[in-house]
Amino acid sequence: MTTHAPYPIGTPGQPWGAAEKSDWRARQTRQRSYETDVLHEIERLSPRFDVVQYGQLDYSPETYPLFAFKSREWRDELPCALVTGGVHGYETSGVHGALQFVDAQASRYQGRVNLVVVPCVSPWAYERIHRWNPLALDPNRSFRDDSPAPESAALIALIAPLRGRFLVHIDLHETTDTDESEFRPALAARDGVESVPSEIPDGFYVVDDSDNPQPAFQQAVISAVAKVTHIAAADAKGEIIDSPMIAQGVIEYSMKPLGLCAGITGARYTTTTEVYPDSPRATPAQCNAAQVAAVCAGLDFALAHPHG
């Protein structure tokens, strides 16, 4: 069986301890600015929306305030919708797609749905272009009670008062070449297991919830994004990232048991988008536009079919 080369941290077959995690953390370098890229945009958009600080991450010597946009004309009789980006900080179009949606499209939904948009759940990872937080934890496997990831715990606390009121949750992600070259090998090394190569799909796809499948909703998202960028095809085994493709560009995960962000609201309609920014057939602008198209298509479908 083909495997990855040994990861440079730790001993093969042995899970990381505190020393290995410290070594890993010391290797992470700041490559871009959350303040410049995200906080300045939030400030620019703040005259048009309610902006709430829902937490702060204290990773000495750095601190990261966490912000969400909310509809200014909030009406309790309306359903709620959650849009999240940057759960994995390295997935750039998730962050900038969320901000672009707020800037260009959110006003279309005024008076129809109460919006909550969290553009960057994991700012430390955004700055370091990484999947994990500094504790070597994946926030997108940590959305559960008593979460060990502060990023996940803060988001859960933000939406807790609204549980039961969400109609839709769209979580914006990317699948990148570095998933295969760095992040999966790092995960295997951290957990002391063998790293087995997989295949990165070329194109956009979505992840439905196997415990609450909504195929028509997912197809509406796929159809809208197909006008912006190409949709991923299945591999020779009929799979996308080792999961069966159940419809064009659609796979399923069990959201809540896996601790995934898209499982936190209990919404009727949920999806995790996956843009492929490393494709020679896609530009950064297309990737952002694909995320915006996914959000709009998801909201439009949910509002047109609020009861399924």
Rank of each mutant, 00 (worst) to 15 (best):
N212A: 14
A233T: 11
G249Y: 05
K227F: 01
I241H: 06
C261M: 11
Y269S: 05
D209H: 07
T265E: 14
A224V: 00
E274T: 01
A224Q: 00
G266C: 13
Y253K: 13
I251M: 08
P284K: 01
S254D: 14
P284E: 00
Y205C: 04
K237F: 06
T271P: 09
D235H: 06
S254R: 14
A232M: 05
I241P: 02
D211H: 08
Y205S: 02
A233P: 04
G249C: 06
P280L: 00
G259A: 08
I246K: 08
V207C: 14
Y269W: 11
V207S: 12
K256C: 09
G249L: 05
Q214M: 14
T229R: 05
S223Q: 12
E239I: 07
D235G: 10
A236L: 09
M245L: 10
V207K: 07
M245Q: 15
S223Y: 04
P215A: 07
Q219Y: 10
P213T: 03
G266Y: 13
A220C: 13
T271H: 11
Y205W: 03
M245R: 12
Y205P: 03
S210L: 15
D209W: 09
A267L: 12
E239S: 12
M255K: 11
F217K: 00
Q219E: 15
A216W: 08
S254Y: 10
L258W: 08
F217D: 00
A232T: 02
K237L: 09
A234R: 02
I240P: 00
I240K: 00
R281V: 01
P244L: 07
L258Q: 10
P244F: 07
I246A: 09
Y269Q: 05
Q214Y: 06
P277M: 02
E252C: 10
T272H: 07
V206A: 02
P280W: 00
Q214S: 13
T271D: 12
Q218Y: 09
E274G: 01
A216H: 11
T270D: 12
P284A: 01
P257W: 09
G238N: 03
D242T: 15
A236Q: 09
Q218R: 10
Y205K: 02
T283H: 02
I222F: 04
Q248V: 11
T271F: 15
V225H: 05
V221G: 05
P280K: 00
P257S: 04
L260Y: 13
